[in-house]
Simulated assay, not measured.
Amino acid sequence: MTAEKPVMRQLKDSLYEQLARIGKAFSSSRRLQLLELLAQGEKTVETLAQESGIDVRLASAHLQTLRNACLVQARRDGKYVFYRLAGEDVAGLIVSLRRVAQGHLLELKKALERIVGNPEKLTAYRRDEFMEMAKNGELVVIDVRPRHEYEAGHLPFARSMPVEEIVDRLSELPKDREIVAYCRGPFCLLSDDAVALLEKRGYRVSKISDGVAEWHAAGLPLEKKVCRQGKKNESTDNFQP
Rank of each mutant, 00 (worst) to 15 (best):
F187H: 08
K175I: 13
D176M: 14
P186A: 15
H154D: 02
E164G: 03
I179H: 08
V163K: 02
L173Q: 07
F157Y: 15
R184V: 00
I166N: 01
P174I: 13
L170K: 02
P162N: 08
P186N: 14
M161A: 09
F157N: 04
D176Y: 13
P162M: 07
Y182R: 10
R177L: 13
G185K: 01
K175V: 12
V163Q: 00
F157S: 05
E178I: 13
P162T: 06
R169A: 05
R177W: 13
M161Q: 04
S160H: 12
E165I: 05
R169V: 03
K175N: 11
V167S: 09
M161H: 02
L173F: 11
E172C: 07
R184K: 14
F187K: 06
I166Q: 02
P162S: 13
S171D: 04
S171E: 01
V180D: 00
R177I: 09
D176A: 14
I179D: 08
P162D: 04
V163N: 02
P156Q: 05
F187L: 11
D168G: 03
S171Y: 01
P174G: 11
S160T: 09
A158C: 13
M161T: 02
M161Y: 00
K175D: 12
Y182W: 09
C183P: 06
D168I: 03
H154C: 07
E172K: 04
L170R: 02
S171V: 03
D176N: 14
E165R: 11
Y182N: 03
V167P: 05
R169N: 09
G185L: 04
I179C: 13
L173M: 15
C188S: 09
Y182T: 02
E164L: 05
D168S: 10
L173A: 12
R159A: 14
I179Q: 08
F187N: 08
H154N: 14
R184Y: 02
H154P: 03
R184T: 01
C183Y: 07
Y182E: 02
V180H: 00
E165Y: 06
A181R: 00
I179F: 12
E178D: 15
H154T: 08
R177Y: 14
P186G: 10
L173H: 11
F157K: 10
E164M: 08
L173P: 06
S171H: 05
R159L: 15
M161S: 00
H154W: 06
S160K: 10
I179S: 12
A181C: 15
P156I: 03
E165W: 11
R169L: 06
L155P: 00
L155F: 07
E165N: 11
C183M: 12
S160A: 15
F157L: 10
A181P: 00
E164Y: 01
A158W: 03
E178Y: 08
P156R: 03
L170W: 02
V167Q: 09
G185A: 14
E165L: 12
P156H: 03
V180S: 06
L170H: 01
Y182C: 02
A181T: 07
H154V: 03
E178R: 12
D168N: 10
H154Q: 12
R177K: 15
R184F: 00
A158K: 01
E165S: 14
S171K: 04
E172S: 05
L173R: 04
V163W: 01
V167K: 09
P186E: 11
I166A: 04
C183K: 05
P174S: 10
P174V: 11
E172Y: 01
I179W: 07
E172R: 02
R169I: 00
P174N: 09
